[in-house]
Amino acid sequence: MSSDSREIVGEKFRIWLRTDGVVEIAWAPHIPSDLADACLVIDAMSELTGGRAAPLLVHTTDAGPQSREARMEFVRRQEVVSAVALIVGNPLSRMMATFFINVSRPDVPIRLFEDEDDALAWLEGHLT
C-alpha cells in the first residue's frame, strides 16, 4: 500500500481526499473483497481525514462482490464517515449497494446514485 498526503493505493482499492473535502474510493474491478480489505480501507480513510468524519463517494459499478464480514465492518466503523454516496451502474452494483443499505442498515445517511455530479452535490450537504 502506497500513500502521499492525499491518496492511498492498496492492492484492491485506491482512496483519495478531494480538495472539496470529500473522500473518494474506487475498488479494483471484479475483485472480491473481505474483512481484511474493509479494515484497510477504513484505516486509509482515517489516515486521510485525520479521524474526522467525512463524506464518502464510492464507485461500485465495477467492484467485485463483498463479503458479509466486510459489510458488517463498514457498519461497525461508520463513525469515520458523515455520509456515503454509492455510484451504481449495472444490475450487480445496484443489487450489492441496495443489499448493503437494506440488510446491513448503516445509521449514517447513505444513498444510491447513477450520476457522479448528483452524488457530489448531495455529499456537499454533509461536509463537516
Binding site: 463479503s67 458479509r68 449495472n90 444490475p91 450487480l92 452494483s93 443489487m95
Partner: peptide, 22 residues
Amino acid sequence: EVGTAGDFVDAVAAGVNSLGEE
C-alpha cells in the same frame, strides 16, 4: 460464481450468495 459482466444473472448470483451469508 459471480461473473464480470455485472448483468442481472451476476446480480442474482451475488444476491443469493449474500442471502446465504445472512
